[in-house]
Computed example of a mutant assay.
Amino acid sequence: MILVKTTIDGTLHRVSNEVLSLDHLWYPYVISISNPMMSLPTDHGGWCRMTAGDIVFAPKLFDDDWPPPKTIDVEIDYTATTEAAATTIISGTAIRREIDYKSVTYTLKQPDYDETVSDGTVYNDTLNNVMTTILTGISEISTVNTSNARATSPSVNFTTSGDQLNIELASKIVSSYTHLFYIDGSTAYLVDMKTCVDTHDLTEYQFFPPKYWDKEPIASVKEITTGNDYTRFSSYPQGVEMTVDVYHSTEANINTALDDIITIENRVRCSVRIPMAEAIPSPGDRIRFNDTRTRNDLSVNIRARVFRYDLNRGMINVEGEGWIT
């Protein structure tokens, strides 16, 4: 069930794509919602960012506020049972795009996160502490949760060159150390991509046929930051070369980071479609199941990195690197 809360001229409205009588009455004023998506800029980490499209309302929602306001606050939740069990999928500001006699269309927008780090800023600390400094420099973020970051936080040592957006700099740094982060409300969550957070075990009746594929393998990863061209090699010499920025000056630290990138990048990719009533994983969670549809049974583990929500059907497609045996 889709639950949409929107505040219009100071009044909270509860609406859905159907009539729902839960703890509150939810009116059927949602015509459609574009499917949101959450994804990483690279397969080895970065900011796991939510993107969304449009939400279309019935004009009835705005009976007391016509014409509809230019902007409204919107929160979209999903639940299979009760209001209390609802999970927030996306929240933010919606900007009016189109009005006609049968519908009102808004485009969902996420915060701009437009704060910048100045040229010449020096960082010499653990990844956890550096991320806390950079991300809490964004007005919308008050806390960085590092409970699922690497047990021994990697060392970061570099000086910025030119002004950079906090959010983009943070994304580049964490990806170089095979971490990701995502933002929920005013909290940023830092996650080690070499481990799993929560595990969702599925039976064969709780998912649709998965897919498995291999990217072209990475033969080597070369850093292009220090001027030393430190390079690490995989066991696939016939693959491609990847170049990355690094955020340390010591060869041993850089080599460890490059080796981790190779490991993540060369894992098999997997995707599976799951009813949202069964599981709504977060970035860094593990999806685990036995696939009995193949020629021989497979034991499958997927680390959740990409999320494609089909809210109208109550489905979610989860993709990430994994391992199959």
Score class of each variant (00 low, 15 high):
55 I>Y: 10
245 D>M: 10
165 L>E: 12
97 R>G: 02
55 I>P: 11
179 H>Y: 08
90 I>L: 09
247 Y>Q: 09
62 F>A: 02
41 P>S: 01
83 E>H: 01
163 D>W: 00
239 G>S: 15
134 I>C: 03
75 E>C: 14
33 I>W: 08
255 N>L: 15
148 N>E: 00
141 I>M: 06
321 E>P: 15
153 S>P: 03
46 G>E: 01
243 T>N: 13
48 C>P: 07
12 L>S: 10
98 E>K: 15
250 T>N: 14
24 H>L: 06
187 T>E: 00
233 F>Q: 05
114 D>K: 15
169 L>F: 04
297 D>W: 14
56 V>F: 05
230 Y>G: 07
283 P>H: 09
80 A>H: 15
148 N>K: 08
174 V>Y: 01
138 I>M: 10
66 W>Q: 10
269 R>I: 01
61 L>D: 00
273 R>G: 03
11 T>Q: 11
10 G>A: 08
34 S>E: 08
318 V>D: 03
264 I>M: 08
135 L>D: 04
84 A>D: 11
153 S>G: 04
274 I>V: 08
202 L>H: 11
270 C>F: 10
264 I>G: 09
278 E>C: 12
234 S>H: 02
35 N>D: 05
203 T>Y: 15
33 I>M: 07
281 P>E: 09
145 N>I: 03
268 V>D: 05
218 I>C: 15
78 Y>W: 12
42 T>V: 03
59 P>V: 03
145 N>V: 01
230 Y>H: 15
280 I>S: 09
122 V>N: 10
229 D>V: 02
